[in-house]
Simulated scan of single mutants.
Amino acid sequence: MAPAGPVRATDTDDAAGERIRAARKVAKFTQQTLAVEVKVSRQTIIAMETGDYAPSVYLAVKVARALGTTVEDLWG
């Protein structure tokens, strides 16, 4: 059975976190602005940027669209 709630990454993905942070800054979003845009907490955005959180495919698509990029560019 799949766990309920957020999933912690088994290994940190620092490169993806750096790409997410860079794309967010290019889009001129704060962590809070991005969080509101994709309807998650700011802590979730922080966890993605530190590589500690593996988002669902649905959330990854929402983040990529909000930042004007692709899932592959952020997590690929």
Score class of each variant (00 low, 15 high):
30 T>R: 07
55 P>T: 07
62 K>R: 15
53 Y>L: 15
42 R>V: 04
40 V>A: 10
29 F>G: 02
63 V>M: 11
35 A>G: 15
44 T>S: 13
56 S>V: 04
52 D>Y: 04
32 Q>M: 11
40 V>L: 07
57 V>Y: 07
37 E>K: 14
55 P>F: 07
32 Q>N: 12
33 T>Y: 00
40 V>Q: 06
44 T>E: 00
30 T>V: 08
40 V>G: 08
62 K>Y: 00
60 A>H: 05
39 K>L: 01
47 A>I: 00
53 Y>F: 15
30 T>W: 07
46 I>W: 09
33 T>N: 01
28 K>N: 13
55 P>A: 06
61 V>R: 10
31 Q>W: 01
40 V>W: 06
41 S>V: 01
39 K>W: 00
44 T>A: 15
54 A>R: 08
31 Q>C: 01
37 E>R: 14
60 A>K: 04
59 L>R: 10
61 V>Y: 00
35 A>C: 11
32 Q>S: 13
42 R>Q: 14
51 G>W: 10
47 A>L: 12
41 S>H: 10
64 A>R: 10
60 A>G: 08
41 S>K: 12
38 V>F: 04
43 Q>T: 13
37 E>D: 13
61 V>C: 04
32 Q>W: 02
31 Q>L: 11
58 Y>K: 11
57 V>F: 07
46 I>R: 15
45 I>W: 00
64 A>E: 09
42 R>A: 03
45 I>Q: 08
39 K>S: 13
39 K>C: 05
28 K>E: 13
64 A>P: 04
54 A>D: 04
51 G>I: 05
41 S>C: 01
34 L>E: 02
30 T>A: 01
52 D>I: 02
38 V>C: 03
31 Q>A: 14
56 S>L: 07
58 Y>I: 03
48 M>C: 13
29 F>K: 09
47 A>C: 01
52 D>W: 04
29 F>H: 11
57 V>E: 06
54 A>E: 06
49 E>D: 09
41 S>M: 03
47 A>Q: 13
63 V>T: 11
60 A>D: 05
29 F>W: 02
35 A>V: 03
53 Y>N: 14
64 A>G: 12
50 T>L: 08
50 T>Y: 09
